[in-house]
C-alpha cells in the first residue's frame, strides 16, 4: 500500500555500525584507564554486518531507537524475566548451526538450514514500530524477508488456517527455561501463532538482522518473526519450527494468562490490558507518553483483516 507522506529520514540517520565499534573501543580504553574491568561488558559487541536496501514504502518515517537501547532493554524470558537478562546472558545462545523445520499442512515440508534461508530469500530493511504490551515502544530497522515468501515455497494445503512458531527449547542455552524456586516462568517451549492471512500479510517479516547487522542473540537470533501491528510478544524469537495447522495453535502468553493476552493481541488503545491502560505508550528515548495508535499505526494496511470481528472479544 502506498504511503502518502514522504520519508523524513534516510539510512544516514541510522548510526553507522562503525560508530558503535569505535564507541566500544573507547569504552574498553576507558575501562583500562580507570582499571574497572567489566565496564565494557554492558556494551553489545557489534555483530557481522548485514547490508540490505531499505524498503521505503514499508518503513516508518521516524528516527530509530538507539541500538544500545534496542539491545539492552529486552523481554526475552528464555534468558530471564529482567530487561537486562537477555543482553547479559545472550552469549550462551549459539545461532549456528541452526535449522528451521517448516511442516504441518503443507505440500512440501522441509527443514531449512539458516544459511540456506539467507541464500533463498533476498533481505530488505524495514523500519517498524515495536509496541510492547507493557506500554513502551521502539522504532527498529529490521532486516528480513516476508514470511509469505517462505510459506509460498512450502505450499500450504487448503486445510491450513494457522501458522505456529516454536522457539528453541534448550535450558543449557536459555537459563530462563530452567525451573526457578516458584516453578517455570512460562510453559516452554515458547509458541506463538498467527492466522494464515496474517502470516501471509506483506508486513509480516521473517527477520534475520537489524541496524545493518545480523540479529543479536538477545533480539531473537538467528531468525525471528516481526508482526508490527501486534504487541511484541506475538513476534516469536529464535524460531526452530514453523508449523501450519487447521486449528488455532496454543500460544505461550495466552496459556499463562488467557484473560490478559489474547490470540490476536493487536495493538489497540481502546482495549486495555485488564490491569493497565493501553491508551498511551512511552517511546524509548522520549520523555512524554504518546498516544498509542490502532494497530500500532498500521491500520490502513491491516484493519481489513478483522472486518466483522469484535476486537474487544477477540483481543
Amino acid at each position: 500500500m502506498l504511503i502518502r507522506r514522504a520519508p523524513r529520514f534516510t539510512s544516514n540517520d541510522i548510526t553507522d555500525a562503525k560508530l558503535y565499534l569505535s564507541r566500544r573501543e573507547w569504552m574498553v580504553g576507558a575501562a583500562a584507564l580507570t582499571l574497572l574491568p567489566g565496564e565494557s561488558a554492558a556494551v553489545t559487541p557489534p555483530g557481522q554486518p548485514l547490508t540490505a536496501t531499505r524498503n521505503d514504502a514499508q518503513s516508518l518515517r521516524e528516527p530509530p531507537t538507539k541500538f544500545e537501547a534496542a539491545t539492552t532493554y529486552n523481554n526475552f524470558y528464555e534468558f530471564g524475566v529482567n530487561k537486562d537478562d537477555p543482553a547479559r546472558l545472550a552469549p550462551a545462545l549459539k545461532p549456528r548451526p541452526w535449522t528451521v523445520q517448516v511442516d504441518g499442512l503443507v505440500h512440501k515440508p522441509k527443514t531449512y538450514d539458516i544459511d540456506e534461508l539467507f541464500r533463498l530469500f533476498p533481505v530488505e530493511e524495514r523500519v517498524y514500530a515495536l509496541r510492547c504490551v507493557e506500554g513502551w515502544s521502539m522504532v527498529i530497522p529490521w532486516i528480513g524477508f516476508p514470511l509469505a515468501s517462505l510459506l509460498k515455497r512450502v505450499e500450504p494445503t487448503a486445510q491450513a488456517k494457522y501458522v505456529e512458531f516454536v522457539t528453541l527449547l534448550d535450558p543449557k542455552q536459555f537459563p530462563g527455561q530452567r525451573p526457578g524456586f516458584f516453578g517455570f516462568a512460562l510453559d516452554w517451549p515458547y509458541t506463538e501463532g498467527l492466522r494464515l492471512d496474517e502470516a501471509l500479510h506483506p508486513l509480516t517479516l521473517l527477520t534475520v538482522g537489524m541496524y545493518g547487522q545480523v540479529l543479536p542473540n538477545q533480539n531473537g537470533a538467528p531468525i525471528r518473526v516481526v508482526v508490527p501491528w501486534k504487541y511484541g510478544f506475538k513476534s516469536a524469537k529464535s524460531i526452530v519450527r514453523i508449523r501450519l495447522t487447521s486449528a488455532e495453535p496454543p500460544t505461550a502468553w495466552n496459556k499463562a494468562a488467557p484473560q490478559e493476552y489474547g490470540f490476536y493481541s493487536n495493538v489497540n488503545p481502546a482495549v486495555d490490558h485488564p490491569r493497565w491502560s493501553q491508551a498511551t505508550e512511552r517511546r524509548i528515548g522520549e520523555f512524554r507518553r504518546r498516544p498509542t495508535l490502532p494497530f500500532n499505526g498500521y491500520a490502513d494496511q491491516v484493519a481489513h483483516l478483522y472486518t466483522g470481528m469484535d476486537l474487544r472479544k477477540d483481543y
Partner: peptide
C-alpha cells in the same frame, strides 16, 4: 502482587 507480570516471582 497485582501489578507483577506472570512469570515474575520477586513479589512472592
Amino acid at each position: 502482587l497485582w501489578l507483577a507480570k506472570v512469570g515474575r516471582t520477586d513479589q512472592y
